Computed example of a mutant assay.
Amino acid sequence: MTPASTGRADACNNLALRKAARYLSATYDKALAPVDLRATQFSILQRLGAEEEMTISGLADAIAMDRTTMASNLKPLARDGLVTVEPSAADRRVRVVMITAEGRARMRAALPLWNDVQARFEKSFGVGEAAQLRASLEGVLRTGFEPWAE
């Protein structure tokens, strides 16, 4: 019998991952609070800053989030003028997200705060261990599950 087959909470991969994710998310949220961003919002702005524009579905895929949750996360960013969400010129049914100048400015203001918490985590956890953690978590995304498939 494997530890996973016993039903013990301490053997649950999902619980372990979610506990660590909540812990780190709260740490990053606290660090980014002075610029009025949450970690997820920062990640969205960071991704859009690199891509210029993306469809909501493409952005959701890039961040491993379902489309509905992504659309909900974009609402406060659009309300605050950090992104725009417009119908695509090629297909009016598709919504395109773009970072605004204000969004770029907020991301630049947040970057030193993000860099600081990133460095503190890596100092505490270990630079090599953090790199291995990211690689392992990327591996999770390649396990073949399709949680948002319709």
Rank of each mutant, 00 (worst) to 15 (best):
F42D: 02
K75D: 01
E51Y: 04
N13M: 06
Q132G: 06
T100E: 06
R79Q: 12
D91A: 03
F121H: 14
A9T: 09
R93F: 10
S25V: 09
L113W: 03
M107S: 08
W114G: 03
R67N: 12
D61E: 11
F125V: 05
A119G: 08
D66Q: 04
T68N: 13
T100Y: 01
A109T: 00
R104P: 00
D10A: 08
S72Q: 11
Q41G: 12
C12P: 04
G103M: 04
E129R: 15
V127C: 03
L111W: 06
V35P: 06
G81N: 02
R79S: 13
R79Y: 12
D29H: 09
A78R: 14
D10Q: 11
P87V: 04
D80F: 06
N73E: 12
S43I: 03
L82R: 12
L82F: 05
G139R: 05
A60D: 07
T69S: 14
L74M: 04
S25Q: 13
R93E: 13
S25Y: 10
D36K: 15
V83M: 02
C12E: 14
I56N: 07
G103V: 03
E146F: 03
M65R: 11
Q118L: 06
P76E: 00
L17M: 11
Y23H: 09
A50M: 10
N13Y: 09
A20E: 05
R38V: 08
N14I: 11
S25P: 00
R104Y: 05
V83G: 02
T143P: 00
E86Y: 03
A149G: 15
V96A: 08
K19E: 10
G81R: 04
S5R: 14
A21F: 12
S136F: 13
E102I: 01
V94A: 05
T6K: 11
R95N: 11
D66Y: 07
T69A: 14
A64N: 13
Q132D: 12
L82Q: 06
V140A: 13
R67C: 06
A64V: 10
A101Q: 10
R93W: 09
Y23L: 09
L141A: 15
V85I: 11
A62L: 02
L133W: 13
V127L: 10
A149L: 10
C12I: 07
D80C: 04
E122Q: 15
A39R: 14
R8I: 03
G58Y: 07
A109F: 00
N115P: 03
S88R: 01
G103P: 05
K19G: 05
M65C: 13
L77K: 14
A26D: 15
A26H: 13
W148F: 15
G7V: 04
K19P: 00
S88L: 01
L45F: 04
A60H: 10
L77T: 08
Q41L: 01
M107C: 01
I99H: 02
Q132W: 07
F145E: 14
V94W: 02
R134D: 08
R47W: 08
L17A: 12
D61P: 02
F125S: 01
I44V: 11
E122I: 01
E52Y: 09
D10V: 09
E129H: 14
T143G: 12
R38H: 09
E86I: 07
W114Y: 15
P87Q: 00
Q118P: 00
E86Q: 12
L82T: 01
L48Q: 04
T68K: 15
